[in-house]
Amino acid sequence: MLKIENLHVRVEDKEILKGIDLNVNPGEVHAIMGPNGSGKSTLAQVLAGREDYEVTEGTVSFLGEDLLEMAPEERAREGLFMAFQYPVEIPGVSNTYFLKAALNASRKHRSLPEMDAVEFLKLVREKMKLVKMDESLLGRPVNHGFSGGEKKRNEIFHMAVLEPRLAVLDETDSGLDIDALRIVSEGVNSMRSDERSFVVITHYQRLLSHITPDVVHVLVDGRIVQSGGKELALELESKGYSWLEKTYDSTAAVMA
């Protein structure tokens, strides 16, 4: 599904990602954890196609295609979705109609017939239940005046409607209360399938007790320093990131 090899990324003059390798197979959920400033969000942004980030080395292929060659909207139409850490408010653009335009852009790209208003509304109603979203949020402008929790739920709602092949969740859990966290996690869990993969980026282990990952990676200073099963997240929880940062530092020292 997603294959990242030796990915180096710089922002302005600073190298943020220093050689990432990651292989996500269909149906897998990968968690990427790491301390602040380790490069987690940079990885998400690069996958979504943010232009301020410069890839200096390495490759990313998505469903066998060169992801880095695609514009952000092409990535989305090919089935990549990123849930934003800070979803943007867009007054004057309806949350529902905008989503219909987005969905139809993807369907057109895949040579599927465009959905009409009736079909779309049926789909939307069904998906709203998934994230227990109030119907009043449908008529509102995109994220406009939404609370922090509502914004994150709206991201999951967008994901549910767009039905991506690969979803990247960028700290979707940060700042959520337990109820919102449960709703978000249930939304994700209900969408898990053999064909769909997730990359869940988080700072906190808490999310991973709601969404059980197949693989956990720990990102420190732009490199994946450890990968393992879901137990790794628990170990991190008890020992803290400093445990791996220290290990990593000594390894680096030895190597140097």
Partner: peptide
């Protein structure tokens, strides 16, 4: 730019 990127990330052309 942030809003443009947000919309594009959902599949809307630039």
């Amino acid at each position: 730019d942030e809003a443009i990127f947000y919309l594009r990330s959902r599949g809307i052309g630039e």
